[in-house]
Amino acid sequence: MAIRIEHLEYVYSAGTAFERKALKDINLEIQDGEFMALIGHTGSGKSTLIQHLNGLLKGTSGTIYYNDESIYGQNYSMKNLRRHVGLVFQYPEHQLFETDVLTDVCFGPKNLGMSPEEAQREAEWALEQVKLDKSFYHQAPFDLSGGQKRRAAIAGILAMHPDVLILDEPTAGLDPRGRDEILNLVRSLHEQQGITVILVSHSMEDVANYASRIVVMDHGSIILDGTPGEVFSHRAQLEQAGLSVPQVTRVMDDLAQEGWPVEKNITTIGEAVEQILKAL
């Protein structure tokens, strides 16, 4: 088991007029090789939760175990944890700072103590994974397009060879093509490299096609946890949390409601097409 969270709580600005409970009694287990999506409305605590997973925030109470070892233990190395649990922040391209793409991607491996040659090898491998052409390696990151910049930034984390990859809204601000590119990239990393993926999003459409498990958060608590089909069957509860089920699920639900012989809780367009053809 990769990550286990037990009774995690987190309070912002404790002891002042601005005190706010961001996480309330979170219990969660994430298995090796899972592709999990974490969904919630703005302010639901999802970004706060993932920052706990690589030790950037420390819970006010509760514990997190990585491979059955508490990360709050006395001699636990946070640096080591961060090498295994890679976190890609929202708008990761805003953290690029080097004069060229390759050097920027080398930053992570170098921090892990690799020699320049090793770091460069890892960086080239990572850039290959995100499908950035060699011609970009020596360009300034600021000359790249939005989607390319984002892929370069993701490569910066990948170059550290994480076992768990967490992405916070990796598609925010991208056009549909850029969005598909990033999500397909994440899927191939999961399938080919066996990386455990935690995808944070508020778009049901995005996650329905990719994740095998969905965890829904609202007001700092986990309210739903299951396969996309299970989660989307709680339509009312999702809407109350400020979320919606994917368009295709809604259409199929409505069709079933109208008396058409189709199944409910369809999550992908492919399944929907199949069902509709059968019904016709």
């Binding site: 976190l87 890609v88 921090n111 892990l112 550290m160």
Partner: peptide
């Protein structure tokens, strides 16, 4: 935080 996630110290 983002740079810490990349191992910066």
């Amino acid at each position: 935080k983002a740079q810490s996630a990349r191992g910066a110290d």
